[in-house]
Design a protein around this nucleic acid. Structure first.
Lengths: 181, 181
DNA sequence: GTCTATAGTACGATAGAC
DNA sequence: GTCTATCGTACTATAGAC
């Protein structure tokens, strides 16, 4: 039962570190410490392997949505605040899946659409105004994508971290203005 | 002289429509209407081909930065407003390059970093406050990445377009508040 | 459940004719 | 400047031993 999870961990690791093209069955098998044949016992094809990643993303996203809904500082701040890489299991899965977003992987795309819809709903519920909710979510999105697509990722972007406080202040102002309206 | 441009156009087309993995020399040559040998006369390797795309991106970005600096509604609004795909030559080059951002293409990454730095400088100059400038740029970034990474791209995302007016109002409010401070 | 060996295809790049 | 033909490698996937 653990070998399956090891393979998914290995896939994530390679996608995060080396990108989509590097995520071959050979490379994933080697990273997971199994042979290619062993890998293909658990996931019968590369397509099935990617679907396994999409499934894991849905599961972990559901847990994160719970956290977001119950966040003491509210879903808006939670979303922007957690849009920087923290190397949690969910972060790793999300970034790995993002690396596949350029291609035509239907399961991954569908999972992303559903997860994003849930996020936006929580933010909209908190701030009331649809345009403000979208603006707040986009700030988090921009933060996330910029970090993920950075060549230095995931070594960290110190400049970004120091500007987080000011950014959260802007988001909070946006939220309060929309609530007051 | 035109064959070179045709090849770059073909590379962009394939990256936009089918993603990074589909952009093989065979596919690009076929799309450009030349043989693989013919392609490799102009670009001696795949690496050289990608560098050609990065160079084109820098050239076209410089022209766009001029437009942005002189925009009647200001760089901030211009940036967010043009963060939706319009199928201009610059848009096509930018989206194509974004498709390569998951991998380890140093020339593409360097070009992106330089171009983005120029955008942020223009916005920061307009709004004064660094945190607000970053927030505004991130809204545009989020808008852009969401569109580009959408599976339906570039067929268009009608829902997004209808929310643009409200979003621009939020951006304008952010800008005016920062200016007044 | 995991391995080795191998089939079949696709890729990047070179050589040489025209 | 563009073509066809080809080499060597790397990829996905299968077959069959253990």
């Amino acid at each position: 039962m653990s070998a399956r999870e090891d393979v998914l961990d290995a896939l994530e690791q390679i996608l995060i570190r080396d990108g989509e093209r590097a995520a071959t069955l050979d490379a994933v098998a080697a990273q997971a410490g199994v042979s290619k044949g062993g890998l293909l016992y658990h996931f019968g094809s590369k397509k099935a392997l990617v679907e396994g990643l999409a499934d894991r993303m849905r599961e972990r996203a559901a847990l994160d949505a719970q956290q977001m809904a119950e966040a003491p500082d509210g879903p808006s701040i939670y979303y922007v605040r957690t849009s920087v890489f923290e190397d949690t299991p969910f972060d790793r899965t999300l970034v790995a899946a993002t690396r596949l977003s350029g291609g035509d992987d239907a399961p991954v795309h569908a999972a992303f659409a559903d997860v994003r819809e849930g996020w936006l709903a929580l933010i909209r519920e908190e701030v009331g105004d649809a345009a403000t909710a979208e603006a707040i979510m986009l700030i988090g999105d921009g933060l996330y994508y910029n970090a993920v697509l950075d060549p230095a990722f995931p070594s960290g972007d110190v400049g970004r971290e120091s500007s987080m406080a000011g950014l959260l202040a802007v988001v909070e102002r946006l939220r309060e203005e929309a609530r007051g309206a």
